[in-house]
Simulated scan of single mutants.
Amino acid sequence: MKYTSQNVLIISMNQLKKYGAIGGAVALVLCWPLAVGHIGQKVIEDGVAQLNNEGVTAEIVSYDRSYLSSVVETRYQVQDPILKEQLEVDGLPTELVVKSDISHGLMSLTANSVLKNFPDFPLLLKTVTQLNGNTEFELSLDSWSYQGSDDQTVSMSISPSVATGTATVLGQVSFQLNVPSVQLDFENGEQLVINQVSAKGEGKQENGFWLGEQSASMKQFSILDQNHDSLFDIDTIGYTFKSSLNAESDRIDTQHIFDMTQLTYPEALS
């Protein structure tokens, strides 16, 4: 085959286009994590801003964004004066600082978040946030026990617990919660024992109202005396709450359902 100067020019142009396309694709791949990080920062900033209300303020303390990852710190403060005072009286925090280690994916951000100002509290929040803002989450608590001060003689222990769910940018939320056991020990030797707590729900918040359905159940609720004899027992209790907007009457319709298998109060029977 004989090549003319025109053929050679056409071949060279085609090769340049091919190399240009390959180079453009490589550049896009190399720049994409930066774009994801930038878009993700905007999503997170908007999400934190929406958490502000009359009772709680939320703000981003720092946002250190790099090529493939970011480190974010956010602060949440209780502003409601009555709630804040009660928390302080009970020795509970009114401010939380959350540190999040974020990885930039192709279409999402993966984050592991812990409480920076309470590093010994074994709480971990794992989230996967799409670039449109929709988020899947898993909140896990490892075995934890709390011993009060000299003035607060109640001690508490919680078994490993987990909550999972999703939250969309439109405000739609679904969740599931499982707490195997909680035990409170009082100074006089009495105990409060709670077993198999579970909850689930799905709905959204509109104009300060929760629209949807949520339910909670508890297998056992017991109060024991110093000799571990029962003072009060509830066996399997449940609660369901439903609410919906009635557009015709412009009102919120709600329904509350309680059910209980058995309640035992030995002292009342004696």
Rank of each mutant, 00 (worst) to 15 (best):
L170H: 05
T166R: 03
P160K: 06
P160V: 06
S143F: 07
M156I: 09
S159P: 06
T166N: 10
E136H: 13
A163P: 14
V154M: 15
S159I: 01
T168N: 00
S140E: 11
E136A: 12
L141R: 01
D151Y: 05
P160F: 05
P160E: 04
V154L: 13
D151Q: 14
L170Q: 08
L170I: 09
S159R: 13
S161C: 07
Y146F: 10
L141A: 09
Q152I: 12
T164P: 09
S143P: 12
Y146M: 02
S161P: 11
F137G: 13
T166F: 03
T168Y: 01
G148Y: 04
Q152T: 15
T153M: 10
S161G: 10
T166Q: 06
S157W: 00
G165A: 06
T166S: 02
S155L: 02
S161W: 02
D150I: 14
S159N: 11
T164W: 02
F137H: 05
A163H: 08
G165P: 08
E138Y: 05
S143N: 12
L139F: 02
S161E: 02
Q152S: 15
S161V: 03
Q147M: 03
V154S: 10
E136W: 14
S140K: 15
W144E: 01
E136L: 14
A167N: 10
G148Q: 06
D151I: 10
S149P: 08
Q147L: 00
Y146L: 10
S149N: 15
G165M: 05
V162T: 15
S143V: 07
S140N: 14
D151M: 11
W144L: 00
S145I: 04
E136C: 05
M156L: 13
T164R: 09
V154Y: 02
S157Q: 11
D142H: 07
D151P: 07
S140W: 00
V154W: 04
